[in-house]
C-alpha cells in the first residue's frame, strides 16, 4: 500500500503497549510518537534505559507491530503488510546492526555477509561478488574467510555493518553499535557509519554515547515513551516534526 508522504520514513502517532499480568491496562512504552526522517539523514536516538528506544527501533525495523499509529517507509504502510510480506520488506528496505552484532559463529565472514542473500534467487557467484564488494567497503576484504571469533571487536562490528548493507537497504538501523566496544573501536565503527552516510545512506541509530550523537545530523531524545527535544547538529536535509511536543 503506497501512501503520499514527504519524508522517506514517517512514524505517525505511534503508541506501543505491552501486555502485563501485573497491570490490567498493560505497560505503555511509546505514547503517540511521530517523527519523519529524510533520505540521506543520520538520526541518533538517545534516552535512558526503559525510555522506549529499543521499542521504537524494532517498530522502525518492521518487527514490532505498534498498538496505535503507523509506520510509512518509502510510501509503504509497513504494518499493513502481512507477516511474510513484511519479512520481504525487511530484506528489501532495511539493514539491521545489532548491539551484540549477532554474527553466526559457525559461518565465516563472507558467509555471514551473504546471509541476507540466502533466500534470494541469485547465482552463488553473484552473491559472493556482492558480499566481497561490501566487505571491501568496510575494510574487511582480506578477511573474508575468517570466522567471527578470529576477528577483533571492531572488525566484528564492521562485519555486522557489512551484513546489514549487503542487500543495499535504503534504511540502516543500528542498535547501540558501539555500546560494547572500547572508545577506539567505537570510533572506528562510527567512522564507517559516517562514511556510509556521506555516500547517501540513511541511518537511524540508537546510542547512549553523546560523542556519537555529536557526529550525526539530528538527535532525538526520548523519555518515558515520548520525545523530549531535538537537536540538529548538522544541516538537516528535511523538515523534522516531533510529537506530541509539536
Amino acid at each position: 500500500m503506497r501512501e503520499e508522504s514527504l519524508a522517506f520514513v514517517a512514524v505517525e502517532n505511534v503508541s506501543k503497549t505491552y501486555s502485563d499480568q501485573d497491570s490490567s491496562g498493560g505497560v505503555q512504552v511509546l505514547r503517540d510518537v511521530s517523527v519523519e526522517i529524510a533520505e540521506g539523514e543520520f538520526v541518533c536516538l538517545m534516552g535512558p534505559s526503559g525510555s522506549g528506544k529499543s521499542t521504537l527501533l524494532t517498530i522502525l525495523g518492521a518487527m514490532n507491530h505498534p498498538s496505535e499509529g503507523r509506520l510509512v517507509i518509502d510510501g509503504i504502510d509497513v504494518y499493513a503488510l502481512s507477516d511474510e510480506r513484511r519479512a520481504d520488506f525487511r530484506l528489501q528496505y532495511l539493514g539491521f546492526v545489532f548491539q551484540q552484532h549477532h554474527l553466526m559463529p559457525y559461518l565465516n565472514a563472507i558467509e555471514n555477509v551473504m546471509l541476507p542473500l540466502a533466500t534470494l534467487k541469485l547465482a552463488g557467484i553473484e552473491k559472493r561478488r556482492r558480499a566481497l564488494d561490501v566487505l571491501e567497503k568496510v575494510g574487511l576484504g582480506d578477511k573474508a574467510s575468517r570466522l567471527p571469533s578470529q576477528l577483533s571487536g571492531g572488525e566484528q562490528g564492521r562485519l555486522a555493518i557489512a551484513r546489514a548493507l549487503v542487500n543495499d537497504p535504503p534504511l540502516l538501523l543500528a542498535d547501540e553499535p558501539t555500546g560494547t566496544l572500547d572508545t577506539k573501536t567505537g570510533d572506528e565503527i562510527m567512522k564507517v557509519f559516517l562514511d556510509l552516510n556521506s555516500l547517501g545512506q540513511t541511518i537511524f541509530m540508537v546510542s547512549h554515547n553523546p560523542a556519537n550523537a555529536a557526529l550525526v545530523h539530528r538527535v532525538l531524545h526520548i523519555r518515558d515513551g515520548e520525545f523530549e527535544a531535538t537537536s540538529d547538529k548538522k544541516d538537516a536535509r528535511t523538515v523534522t516534526r516531533l510529537s506530541p511536543a509539536l
Binding site: E84, A87, R90, Q92, F96, H102, M104, P116, N167
Partner: peptide, 16 residues
C-alpha cells in the same frame, strides 16, 4: 532463539 530472531530480522520469512 537469537539466531532465528536475527534471521527473521534480516528478512527471512517463516517458511525460510
Amino acid at each position: 532463539t537469537k539466531e532465528i530472531g536475527v534471521l527473521r530480522a534480516i528478512g527471512f520469512r517463516r517458511t525460510h
